[in-house]
């Protein structure tokens, strides 16, 4: 497996959640090969461009705020936008809206696969747990299926399998959340899971693995 590059800023509450939950992916990538972990303030464009140039990672897992045209890193430094060209890579963007314009543009310019969201990526969470994100059972419902995109790819499966397993896990959690055994919070948050489930898309060659 060629190397994996992960960006995970942590400058605000939401990014702290993504940062903490990405640790599992970083650990798995370390076990399987090389991983470049642009964590916290390291998640800036200068570093990203430098690692892409010198290390040519096969898989980019980007966490951070986004919109239809760009994905941001530490302190919302723009990491990827219309100027970016990331050929020969597989990319998963845990960011909002990036599959609307940015993703198709990257695939047009040679990115093999882009997995992302056509709408806002939503994460329900428990206000009392914000300083212990990994103990937040509500956030787990949202972020664990999302991590599956990355971990399934790192295990050598195809992009289609990664996307499919993630969506299947979201649907499993969704069904649990609307069941009679769910807590009131889970039942309420089910609508948000439904939104993520329907906005996660795979663009490019679904048969590719890294």
């Amino acid at each position: 497996m060629r190397s994996v590059l992960i960006t995970r800023p942590q400058h605000d509450e939401i990014n702290r959640y993504f940062h903490a939950w990405s640790e599992e992916v970083v650990d798995m990538a370390r076990l399987r090969g090389s991983v470049y972990d642009l964590s916290g303030p390291k998640a800036i464009r200068k570093n990203l461009d430098s690692y892409i140039q010198s290390k040519n990672p096969a898989f980019l897992f980007l966490n951070g705020h986004g919109n239809s045209k760009n994905i941001a890193g530490h302190d919302n430094d723009i990491l990827v936008d219309y100027r970016s060209s990331l050929p020969d890579t597989v990319m998963y963007a845990r960011s909002c809206d990036a599959a609307q314009v940015l993703g198709p543009g990257l695939v047009e310019k040679g990115t093999k696969v882009f997995i992302g969201y056509t709408r806002k990526f939503i994460c329900g969470y428990t206000p009392d747990k914000t300083w212990r994100p990994l103990e937040d059972a509500m956030a787990k419902l949202f972020l664990e299926p999302s991590n599956l995109v990355a971990t399934t790819l790192i295990k050598g499966n195809t992009a289609q399998e990664a996307h499919g397993r993630s969506r299947a896990a979201m649907y499993k959690n969704f069904r649990k959340m609307i069941s009679s055994t769910a807590t009131f919070e889970e039942r309420y948050a089910a609508r948000w899971m439904w939104s993520n489930l329907n906005s996660q898309v795979l663009l490019g060659d679904s048969s590719i693995s890294i």
Binding site: D12, E13, I14, G66, C96, T126, Y188, A189, W192
Partner: peptide, 17 residues
């Protein structure tokens, strides 16, 4: 209005109660 106060949501860059 019936959303529990023990729940918040991250919508994009916004954390909302």
């Amino acid at each position: 209005g019936v959303m529990p106060n023990t729940l918040s949501i991250a919508v994009g860059s916004e954390a909302l109660n």
